[in-house]
Amino acid sequence: MSNIKIIKGAFESKLELQDASIVAGFPSPADDYSHDTLDFNRDFIKHPEASFYGEVEGESMRDAGLNDGDRVIIDRAVVPHDGSIVVAWWDGGFTMKYLDLTHRNEGYIELRPANPDFPVFKVDNPEEFEIWGTVIHQIRTFEKL
């Protein structure tokens, strides 16, 4: 083992656990049942080309469990529906709110915070507004390594 060095880098292929078995030992009976290791990127980021990260700032989505400093994963390939948490460009910056389509037929939509201390935005001018993407995951770090 002394001549094996671990370097941090971009590896073309993943390390397969079965490859790490000891040479000359008995073959593991589990080899016949091998299955790929769970992989967050593979299983939770379904559209890597359309996925972006964002950081929550402030308390406007507190009651949805989204706290200041949390990170979220935004998927632009996912079409938002009524009640989705979306990222929108509004008033010169990005905002994250619930999408409320109740009044769509009356010519406006609403962006609802999850905190009674914050206002509901009524959007009736699509010119200065854009739904940028749909929030699909949240990441909160409890232990800084």
């Binding site: 990260y53 964002g54 950081e55 700032e57 406007s60 990170r71 990222v87 990005f94 905002t95």
Partner: peptide, 9 residues
């Protein structure tokens, strides 16, 4: 860069 990801108000 993680330090540059978009901020969501």
């Amino acid at each position: 860069r993680w330090s540059d990801i978009i901020k969501l108000k």
